[in-house]
Design a binder for these strands. Structure first.
Lengths: 150, 150
DNA sequence: CTACGATAGTCCAAAAGTTGGACTATCAAC
DNA sequence: GTTGATAGTCCAACTTTTGGACTATCGTAG
């Protein structure tokens, strides 16, 4: 059995991770587009995933998204232009700006949370609720996201 | 609790997928660089992951990698220049070329398989062998890769 | 209160990566 | 042997990412 056949039947963790991410991303933005959010593309995801109703600092966003400042800055420019968010001065720090979702931004947050929930529900149906819950727990643990759920 | 706090303690599936993929990718190429493969970058991963000792068609590679022809073509050019693979004529189809790893390509395949195995071993230790095996099974199922392991 | 190094964010220009379209060669089926 | 599909390349436009320098503000230590 060649490596390719092996990889096709038992893909390594990297391939599985890529499928998980790109599969989810593809469905999210495809279904989003059908619901009137055709102006959003996967690259916006890095920012959209961390929007917060109460605002989030651009720097924190940059850290969470794992990209550099000017990349995030450019995506923010675009999302601001598209009407998903605004940058308001941070009252606590005059260098900083707070990223606030607009009404449309909030709408997208609801829509995207709903789509992701729906995808997760489908997965849970496919493998069983308990098994899916265990899967999620393990995934959180190995990605180092299991910490303190207070 | 704001969305950001929620997302930090219980990240959604997209965020987890991104962490899984980029975490693995980062460690793979960082450790690879320490072992003398510093000329390989994450973007080569899409191609490297599917190299086969017995050769693989460029088109099949393109399909598996989920990018378009010229993107894969460009990555192949680069990996060929770096000495990881060669393109040989496909004896069965004179339009086609077979991508064959060179000695160095084979070396990388061994090294990267080893690093990934090591990462997986670490995960298994962290959550338990059985739980990790179940995790992998579920991940394969929900990414649609559970089919026929003959 | 002033000086300091660190941090938030922007600007610009270069580099890198991706995409679309047209093109050649070959294939497989009729 | 014509025809429609497929393998792959080339080129030029476009988009994204990066590096470096820069301004403003912050927080701390004198």
């Amino acid at each position: 059995m060649g490596r390719i056949a092996r990889k096709t039947s038992t893909p390594d963790l990297g391939i599985l991770g890529a499928r998980l991410l790109f599969g989810l991303q593809g469905e999210l933005f495809r279904r989003g587009a059908e619901l009137g959010f055709g102006d959003l593309k996967p690259k916006h995801g890095a920012v959209l995933a961390y929007l917060d109703e109460n605002g989030i600092g651009q720097n924190e966003l940059t850290r969470l998204a794992g990209r550099n400042k000017q990349t995030i800055g450019a995506i923010l420019d675009e999302l601001e232009r598209l009407g998903y968010l605004t940058r308001v001065p941070d009252p606590a720090d005059r260098r900083a700006r707070l990223i606030m979702p607009t009404g449309r931004g909030l709408e997208w947050m609801r829509v995207s949370d709903g789509i992701v929930e729906d995808i997760e529900r489908r997965h849970a149906e496919m493998v069983g609720t308990e098994e899916y819950a265990a899967f999620l727990r393990t995934l959180k643990t190995i990605t180092g996201s299991s910490q303190e759920i207070h």
